[in-house]
């Protein structure tokens, strides 16, 4: 049984550290914040940056979401593999081979390239 109270306490310590930095800056820094246009290398800013943004690698996200679900099974598998023996190794790496086959297919289709 794990105790997560230390995790909560550590979160409090880390947050206190960050807040302390902000507090120190509030006490020490000079003047009110300066509101300036974002840096654009001197060009005038003509629109908000936070508009639609077309990522060129959206196919990778789909592959990733599917492949990383495999870790859900692999972490508990680690605990039993030595006891279950070669049969467990075969099952897991058979499972992985199926997913790698899908990755190879995606590679052949150029899904890892920017489009």
């Amino acid at each position: 049984m794990d105790s997560f109270w230390p995790a909560l306490a550590l979160f409090a310590v880390a947050s206190a550290g960050v807040l302390g930095l902000y507090g120190a800056a509030a006490l020490l820094s000079v003047g009110e914040p300066l509101v300036r246009e974002p840096y654009m290398g001197g060009s005038p800013v003509s629109e908000h940056a936070v508009s639609r943004f077309h990522v060129r690698w959206y196919a990778v996200t789909l592959l990733f979401i599917a492949f990383d679900m495999e870790m859900v099974f692999m972490y508990p598998w680690v605990l039993v593999v030595a006891e279950k023996g070669m049969h467990a190794v075969g099952e897991m790496f058979g499972f992985l081979a199926v997913l790698v086959a899908a990755v190879v297919y995606a590679w052949r289709e150029g899904a890892f390239r920017w489009t």
Binding site: A66, V72, F73
Partner: peptide
């Protein structure tokens, strides 16, 4: 719980693929 998580991932991947 694992099945729900898996359903979530598959739903997301397929949902996005179909939306695209």
């Amino acid at each position: 719980v694992l099945a729900a998580m898996l359903a979530m991932a598959v739903e997301m991947a397929m949902g996005f693929a179909v939306t695209i």
